[in-house]
Design a protein around this nucleic acid. Structure first.
Lengths: 169, 169
DNA sequence: GAGTTTTAGGAATGATTATTCTTGACTGTT
DNA sequence: AACAGTCAAGAATAATCATTCCTAAAACTC
């Protein structure tokens, strides 16, 4: 159930998802939603936390197994659940974190974990060009995913998952 | 007037800004808003287009005058109106572009212009490490600004404009 | 200075929102 | 079989949303 909520909250902005849409797509019905999570925001926070708890270690593992920074980026952008997970992180950072302190805390904690993983990784010091800190890796990751999402509507809905990858070869 | 709309739309998500808030912060009153722009979305598009038309050349100029890629990044992140302008671009890309095709077209055009400027710049080929295409520069730029915004609420409102710059020295 | 057109200001409107309440069906216990 | 409690399903509620309409004031023309 939370997984379906993650997919919905990752697709559009928080205010663009109505409770009616949640209960119809989640199978669960209105009363249980409020009984279990208290409010729409409660469900959102639960979805965000569940998503980050499983997404951040997954991304860290991908980074650790990559042989260089470019490969790590590629892995992060193409790993299985990265689509919905990273989109939710992206939306949370862009539109909820500035107005919801708990979301901000959750988001910064996740991003800091990623930074630390990049710094610990043996490929961390390879990022010497423009990204002098591991923050740059995380920022580039989010920025690339952002561009893919932003361009999705311009070329028809038949666009595959990734098109603007960092290295086409 | 459009400038004030840019500042508002850059601060929160599109659905989080009500028309009441717009007319009270813009000085102009409801009737003229609908007479001039037709709808809330019309005003949003006008604000986005006005903002991009003046922001993108400004960023391109900053990139062109920088002596290396790191300096270009620093310039882009600290230039005068970059705050509101880049925040609006960021929010438009994250939450409006996936659901509004005209916004998507506007955003991708702006980002592609930035890419082209980076590629033409004499410092473009310096980005050899992880960003093998100029797209990486733009992505990192957006990602860094995204992190600053996301972390703004975690450490109290007294945080200065930039804290997570790419190189603290 | 009178008449006409525009403009401001705010009160309706109708739709949609998140949340709660009521009603009816189902389950477990004795 | 009878009763207590849980749960689903949707109707009601109160607020807010974007948008339109109406009335009065102001500005411009002649």
């Amino acid at each position: 159930m939370v997984r379906a909520a993650v997919a919905l909250f990752a697709s559009r902005a928080y205010d663009g998802i109505s409770v009616d849409e949640l209960v119809s797509h989640l199978g669960v019905h209105r009363n249980s939603l409020y009984k279990t999570f208290g409010s729409k925001r409660g469900l959102y926070l639960a979805a965000l936390r569940w998503c980050l708890k499983q997404e951040v270690p997954s991304l860290i593992a991908e980074i650790g197994e990559a042989e260089n920074v470019a490969a790590a980026m590629q892995r992060c952008l193409t790993t299985g659940t990265a689509g919905a997970g990273m989109d939710l992180l992206l939306l949370a950072a862009a539109e909820r974190a500035p107005v919801d302190r708990e979301v901000a805390i959750e988001v910064t904690r996740a991003l800091d974990s990623l930074d630390e993983a990049v710094g610990r990784c043996r490929t961390g010091k390879e990022a010497a060009g423009i990204m002098r800190s591991p923050t740059g890796f995380t920022a580039t990751l989010l920025g690339l995913r952002l561009r893919v999402r932003a361009a999705a509507l311009t070329a028809g809905p038949a666009t595959p998952t990734l098109q603007h990858g960092p290295h086409p070869s």
